[in-house]
Each structure stands twice: as C-alpha cells, then as structure tokens.
C-alpha cells in the first residue's frame, strides 16, 4: 500500500483502488456470487400449485352451499334454534373465507426455499451429457496437444526466420477468423449433402449423417480450438536456449530424449496454458454445438444451460447447471497446475 501511495499520491491511489474494486467486486466476484446464490434456491408454491387451485375451488363451492343453507334457514320461522344455526353457518363461512384468503396469497406469492434441488434435478440423462461434454473436451485437448506440439517446436526452433514468419502468418490467419465462420466452413463440409458426403459418394459409400449423430460437433470443436494450443507452447519453447538442445545432441542424446528431458520440461507453463484454454473453450463452447447440430440433437452441456435460461426460463436451475460447469473448469485448472507444477503467475502471461 505504501509503495502505491509513494508512486501515485493519495488521489490517484484512491482512484486506482476504486476502479480495481469496482472491477473485482462488481464485475467478477459479485456476479459469480449472485449466480451461485441463485442456484441454491427455488420458488416453492406450498406443495403443488395445481392442488392449491383445486383446493380454493372446493372452498368456494362449500361457501356457496353454506350461503344457500343460510338463505333456507332465514326463510324459516324465527326461533332461537334457527338463530343459533345461522350464527354457526356464518362462523364457518368466515372460517372458510379465511382459508381461501390464505391459500390465495400462497398461490400468488410463492415461497423462496433454499435447497439442493436445482442440482439434484439434473437426472441421469443430463448428467450423462455433462460427463460426455467433459470427456469430449479432454479428448479435444489431448488431440490439440499432439497435433500442435510439433508445430510450435518447428516454428520456434527448426524453421529459418523467413519461413517461421510465413508459418506464423499461416497460423494467425485461421486463428483470427471468427469462431462462427470457422465452424460454418465445417457445416458445409459435413452437411448431409456436403463435401464429405460428396467425396464418400464418389468412392461408393452411403451418405453419413454427421450432424444428426453429433459427431460433427466433435470434429468442428477440434478445428475451432486447436490453435489455442499452438501459441502458448510456442511462446515458452522460443525462450529455451538452443545451446541446450545442441549440447544434448552433441553428447549423443536421441531426439525423443531431448524432448522428454529438455524441451517438454521447459515448455510446461505453455503446455498448461494451452491445455487450460483448449479445455475451457471446448467445454464452454455454445457456438459450435449450436451451429453443428442445427437443433437435431443436444449433445453439449452448454445447450442445456441455454435452454434452462432462455427456453424453459428456469434461471435457478440454469444457474446450478452453469455453476456445475464452472466447478469442472476450476478443477481442471488446478489439476493442470498440479500436473505441470506451475503457479497462477506462470499461467497468465
């Protein structure tokens, strides 16, 4: 705090603290907390809303019958017995009206009940989709690593400067093109009458329903997010002193040993970042399943979240689903930090 004051003086320090505070509390922690809070309650209408409505109807019927009884009694000859009966009926009518009023307030103002219901409501089929999403994301991450590591190493250590610049350009262009358009290109390829089926048809195969089976989503995911693995790995491999690799080679180390003992350990932070980014983007992707299924299947967890929010309008359950996804991503981040033995400082660079 003192060094902050020394550099900026009281006014600027106050402004800095205010801005950082607004960001941390108002835009990062606050929204997350409200989302989590919302995931732990639901609106309870005192059992079943339909039951209440039926109950209210019954009570009204009873009141009507009692009113008829009262009118019949009033038509009779005046007597102490009759007055007592009327008084009794009036009392029970008042009682029933009180019940009706109570039921009606419960019908219009449901109670807020804290519970785990939003989480337990998920059920087997949604849980299966969740697990499938996580497993598919891990698979995409692994494929991306296997494909991208040689590429990153090539650009950083093997290519001549001009060639490296050209390869870099070749990587940046598809990376920078909008995610939706990249996926759209695959929609054209994997459509029922798209390029893939056209080529399969040429060699005598039946058309394959890639989109309807959901496999199109996986293929497009790999394509859409693979490049998020290249750049972090490239950034770390580039800082490796080439002399180390050459020294190892001169001493007779085979290529795979050089990678295992020198390049990979050095690239750890980059690999961790690449894996985290690829996994997070894949598991949290809404655009790819949205475009690649065209509404025919629902294979991705994010689609369930979207439906809870904007179709069945159940924000509480939607929040619970969203929080579940967030937890999965947080666990993955900590797992990567543990496996690659890196800190949060190494990660975000």
């Amino acid at each position: 705090m003192n060094s902050l004051l020394r550099s900026f003086g009281p006014h600027l320090t106050a402004l800095i603290l205010l801005l950082a505070g607004v960001w941390i509390v108002g835009m990062i922690i606050g929204p997350q907390l409200i989302m989590v809070e919302q995931s732990f309650w639901h609106l309870d209408r005192g059992g079943d809303a339909v039951n209440i409505t039926v109950q209210i109807d019954n009570e009204y019927n009873d009141v009507d019958l009692l009113l008829f009884d009262k009118m019949d009694l009033e038509a009779e000859k005046a007597s102490a017995e009759r007055d007592a009966k009327i008084a009794e009926i009036v009392a029970s009518i008042a009682q029933k009206r009180a019940i009706i009023a109570e039921l009606e307030t419960r019908e219009v103002t449901p109670k807020k009940v804290y519970s785990l219901r939003n989480y337990t409501i998920m059920g087997g089929s949604h849980l299966a989709i969740f697990l499938k999403t996580i497993l598919a994301s891990v698979a995409v991450t692994l494929i991306a690593f296997v494909v991208c590591y040689p590429m990153a190493y090539t650009v950083a250590k093997l290519a001549t400067p001009n060639k490296a610049a050209l390869i870099m350009l070749g990587l940046i262009v598809p990376y920078a093109i909008n995610e939706l358009l990249r996926v759209f290109a695959w929609l054209m390829i994997l459509n029922y009458n798209g390029v893939a089926n056209f080529l399969l048809g040429l060699i005598g195969f039946e058309p394959v329903p890639f989109l309807e089976s959901g496999s199109g989503v996986f293929i497009a995911m790999v394509y859409a997010y693979i490049l998020f693995m290249v750049f972090p790995i490239y950034n770390t491999v580039e800082t490796l002193d080439t002399a180390q690799i050459e020294a190892a080679r001169d001493m007779g180390a085979p290529t795979w040993q050089i990678h295992r003992k020198i390049v990979l350990p050095h690239a750890k932070p980059g690999i961790a970042v690449g894996c985290i980014m690829t996994f997070m983007l894949t598991a949290g992707s809404y655009s790819v399943p949205y475009i690649m299924t065209r509404g025919t299947v629902e294979p991705w967890f994010t689609q369930l979240i979207y439906n809870k929010f904007f179709e069945s309008l159940n924000w509480n359950t939607g929040s619970a689903y969203a929080f579940t996804l967030l937890i999965a991503c947080v666990i993955f981040v900590f797992l990567m930090m543990r496996i690659f033995n890196v800190s949060i400082r190494d990660i975000a660079k």
Partner: peptide
C-alpha cells in the same frame, strides 16, 4: 488470481452471471 480468473472462465458463464447480477 482473481483479476485473471475471467480468462479461465467459460464465456457463457461470464454472460450468465452478468445478466443475473
């Protein structure tokens, strides 16, 4: 860590939490 956490959070969750907030 808190300040970089949005980069490690799926985009849809940032959207949802802001909307709810």
């Amino acid at each position: 860590g808190i300040m970089v956490s949005p980069l490690l959070t799926p985009g849809i969750i940032l959207g949802i939490s802001t909307l709810i907030f």
